[in-house]
């Protein structure tokens, strides 16, 4: 995943040339596109360890609330995604010749909310597709449309942070919080049913 993100940074920077204005304008979109596709590679592997010998069934039959399995997978995916973002964002800024702007706490906020939105939807869909024969296809087909709102809001918030447009920035952040909240609650309501899909 990390190699993919680094490759995206260098390929797009090279193809856009040395026009600083072009590089600055393109950065938010390319940054989040790299995270989206890197995250999709990771999401396809969410239950890879459980598939071959159906270990997931053993986990489901263990005592305790089944939601713990989802939350554990979600936490793992979130931590992994945030780590990739934290490592690669400075690299993107450097390669795209964009000066660091805005407090680091606001950068962390965007990265965390964007990662949460992505992995919440991704983990839910991974769970639903794990027992289906064409799971990877279903995951890709459903994940991309559902991630469109997250991508729009994170790209806009990143752009506003880079241009120091505070009013617009908070609007997108509130939108992200609402989206994340919806996909935090939805799996908690659906999860018992999801296992039998």
């Amino acid at each position: 995943m990390m190699i993919f993100v680094v490759m995206m940074a260098f390929l797009f920077a090279l193809s856009l040339g040395s026009h600083v204005a072009d590089l600055h304008a393109a950065l938010p979109g390319i940054l989040w596109m790299a995270f989206l596709f890197a995250g999709m590679i990771g999401m396809g592997k969410t239950f890879a360890n459980e598939v071959r010998e159906e270990a997931l069934t053993g986990l489901i039959l263990a005592p305790g609330d089944k939601i713990a399995i989802y939350l554990a997978k979600l936490t793992g995916a979130f931590v992994f995604m945030v780590l990739i973002e934290i490592v690669s964002t400075p690299l993107f800024l450097e390669v795209f010749q964009v000066p660091w702007r805005g407090p680091w706490t606001l950068w962390l906020l965007i990265l965390a909310l964007g990662a949460a939105g992505f992995v919440e939807v991704g983990t839910l869909l991974s769970t639903m597709s794990v027992h289906t024969s064409s799971g990877d296809l279903i995951l890709t087909m459903l994940l991309l449309p559902l991630e469109i709102p997250v991508m729009i809001m994170t790209v806009q918030a990143t752009r506003d942070l880079l241009t120091l447009t505070r009013a617009g920035f908070w609007l997108w952040i509130h939108g992200l919080i609402a989206y994340d909240a919806i996909f935090w609650v939805l799996p908690l309501m659906l999860y018992d049913y999801v296992w039998e899909v």
Binding site: N49, E50, E53, E54, T57, I60, L61, A62, P63, K66
Partner: peptide, 16 residues
Amino acid sequence: SDQRVVLLGHHSFLYP
């Protein structure tokens, strides 16, 4: 789920 009931399926439910 109930710890007093265990299932042995077609797969081992273990991690390779």
